[in-house]
Write a protein that binds this DNA or RNA. Sequence first.
DNA 1: TCAAATCCCATTGACGCCCAATAATGCCCA
DNA 2: TGGGCATTATTGGGCGTCAATGGGATTTGA
Lengths: 159, 159
Amino acid sequence: MDRFLSTAVMNIDAKGRVSVPGRFRQVIMARGYQELYALRCLDIPALDVGGPDLLDAYEARIASEDPFLQTADDMSFFIHGDGDFLKMDSEGRLQVSDFIRAHTHVADQIAFVGRGKHFQVWEPERLSDYSADVRARLLKLRQAKLVQTGSGAVQGEPE
Amino acid sequence: MDRFLSTAVMNIDAKGRVSVPGRFRQVIMARGYQELYALRCLDIPALDVGGPDLLDAYEARIASEDPFLQTADDMSFFIHGDGDFLKMDSEGRLQVSDFIRAHTHVADQIAFVGRGKHFQVWEPERLSDYSADVRARLLKLRQAKLVQTGSGAVQGEPE
DNA sequence: TCAAATCCCATTGACGCCCAATAATGCCCA
DNA sequence: TGGGCATTATTGGGCGTCAATGGGATTTGA
C-alpha cells in the first residue's frame, strides 16, 4: 500500500496549519520523500503535490511539447517559476502559504485527493464541482463505448 | 466456491462497524486479499469492493491511455480520488467511514451484494429501488424481443 | 524589534486490537 | 428423523495507541 488513495477534508487551524492525513503521511514515508514539491495544476485550481518523481513527470510533459513552440516555454515558466517546496512540521502539518491560497482559494478547509503516485490539494467546494464534471465525462465515455450490458449496473470493468 | 454471491443486510453497531458476511469473508480469504479496495460507482449510490487486483486492473487500463490526455487524468482522478482501502479488524468487521456514508447514504444498515469477482455495498432501501429498476429494464427488453420474433405468447411475469 | 514560522507539550477523540457473550449454523449420533 | 453437541458467525464493549488539534514558548528572518 504505497499509493495515495481516497479523499480527505482537513481543517486549517487559527495559525494557518493543516494536518496531512495519516494515510498520506505513511505513503510519503514509504516512498522516502524527504520533502514535497507543490506545483500548480495547469487548468484547475489545485496543486499537485509529490516527491521528486512528480517533477520528472512534469518535465516529461514539457518535453513532449515542441521546444520551438511557445507552449513549452510557457509551461516551463508556469511550473518552475511558481512551484514550491512544502515542509511538514514535527506533527506532520503543513503551513498553508499564500502560494497555496492564491491558486486554490482555500479558506478554512482543504481537501487532500489521492492520485496514486502523488496527491492534490483542493478547496472542497471546487473539488466537488470538478468531481461531478469528471464523473459526467467518464459516464459519457462509458455509454459511448457500451459494448456489453450486464444487468444494467454497467460498471466499466477492465477484465 | 470463490465467488461473491447473494445479498445480505448487516447491522452497523454503535461504534460504526459492520461485519462482513461470513460467506464473503471466506471468499476474501480464499482469494488471499489482505485488504480491500473500494470504489464509488459512477452513477449509482453504491461501492464496488474487491481485492487490490481490482485497482491494478484499473491502473493497467489507465496506463494504456495517452497520459497527457484528459481521459487518462479523469480516470486516475476517479479510481484514486474516489477509491479507498478498507481493512477488516480481527473479527472481520469494517469501519463504515464517511467515505462510505457520503456516497451510499447508509445509516444503520448496509447491504452486501455479491457480484462474482467483487461485491457491492448499498443502503438497503436504495438497493431494492434499484433492483426493481433493473428488473423492469430486463423485462421490457425481453418483451421487446418477444414482439420482434413474433412468438406471440407473452409470458406472465411473476411480480 | 516585530511578525511570522517553528517547536514543543497537552488535550481530545477516533480507531485498532483484544476478549467475552450470545446467536446461528451445521454435524453427528442414536 | 430428531435431539444434542460443536463450531463458527455476529455482536458488544473495554482499553491502549495514535492521529488530529489547540495553544504557549522559542526561534528565525526581514
